[in-house]
């Protein structure tokens, strides 16, 4: 099964809508609640990263018997140093975003801690692609 969601950069009032919609689908598919929790944490963080940093993005999700594979592809500033971005506490979020309680440098950690495979590719000035998988069962 394939699902796609559009995400607008900067629109915090809709942040998490895609994650919420996909969570409902996972419930309908009777996916194990523990796995749903892990997928939702990773997906939400990656969705918010598009809202906080990029201009726009698309989320492409494939649900197979054995795994859920999620790709988040954005048009945005890109990440100059991915290993730096992966460090706990490192963030380039704006003061406004931080005031809301985002931008603590925990998002990518939350993704890494909840997925079985994670791949991040980025081109500065073009955009970022975050891909991850969670094994089912």
């Amino acid at each position: 099964m394939h699902f796609e969601y559009q995400v607008d950069g900067g629109n915090f009032s809709n942040a998490g809508v895609a994650s919420s919609q996909f969570k409902k689908i996972l419930k309908q598919l009777n996916v194990d609640p523990g796995l749903i929790k892990r997928i939702v944490v990773a997906l939400y963080e990656a969705e918010v990263n598009i809202v906080a940093h990029a201009y726009r993005g698309i989320i492409k999700i494939d649900v197979n018997i054995d795994k859920v594979r999620i790709a988040l592809i954005d048009e945005g500033p890109g990440i100059p140093d991915i290993s730096k971005a992966m460090e706990a506490g490192f963030s380039t979020a704006s003061p406004k975003v931080r005031e809301m309680g985002f931008g603590a440098g925990m998002g990518l950690q939350n993704i890494r801690n909840n997925v079985d495979q994670l791949d991040i590719e980025s081109v500065v000035g073009k955009g970022t692609k975050v891909e991850f998988e969670v094994n089912l069962g």
Binding site: F12, K37, G101, A104
Partner: peptide, 27 residues
């Protein structure tokens, strides 16, 4: 910190915070 709650608060917990925006409810 929203990502702290997202990553570490379990189901059924009462979330105590001073954040007052819509994203709190989404989480």
């Amino acid at each position: 910190l929203l990502s702290d709650v997202m990553g570490f608060a379990d189901q059924g917990k009462l979330w105590i915070t001073l954040q007052t925006h819509r994203n709190v409810m989404a989480i």
